[in-house]
Amino acid sequence: MIPGVTLELILYVTALGLVIIGLAGVVLSSHLFRMVLALVIAEAGANLMLVLSGYRWDAVAPILMQRTDQPAMVDPVPQAMVLTAIVIGVGIQALAVSILIRIRQRYGNLKRREVAEKMDAEIAASAGIRRDISQDAPLGERPLSPLPAHTAESRGGDA
């Protein structure tokens, strides 16, 4: 083993690395489905971090066995929490994918920029605003939103 590289370092780097890879993926990817996948990666990292918070050296799974010398057990609470978090994640991912199927059917593709532009156009049209100013007009001609539409998600990630 390389000196200085301990088990804890490896585990923390893995957990936080997954989170960072996931968040960066959400910010950087230009395809909506890849954003979902990136989110899944980030969630895996967060879940790993949660499990690590209850880890104990030389301890066994928290299940009582019929024996007298019960060894030390790891903390059961993070395991219960992580079970909950995983199931929540699965539900949200399934919903995200089903929404993506519909977006793909309605807008034709899943490119982030195009979907955002078509969404803006549709909202404006349904509100009855004449859109004689194109999306590419100088910034001052457009309503100043705190986050321009096509970078909205990415700015969210910068938080």
């Binding site: 804890e8 370092l9 923390y12 780097v13 936080l16 690395g17 989170v19 960072i20 890879i21 968040l23 960066a24 910010v27 950087l28 971090m49 990415s154 990630g157 910068d158």
Partner: peptide
């Protein structure tokens, strides 16, 4: 900027977590 931010956040979190 996204990469820089993500890297920075990761470094900070790692420093805290260690």
């Amino acid at each position: 900027t996204g990469l820089l931010f993500a890297g920075g956040l990761g470094f900070m979190l790692l420093a805290i977590a260690s």
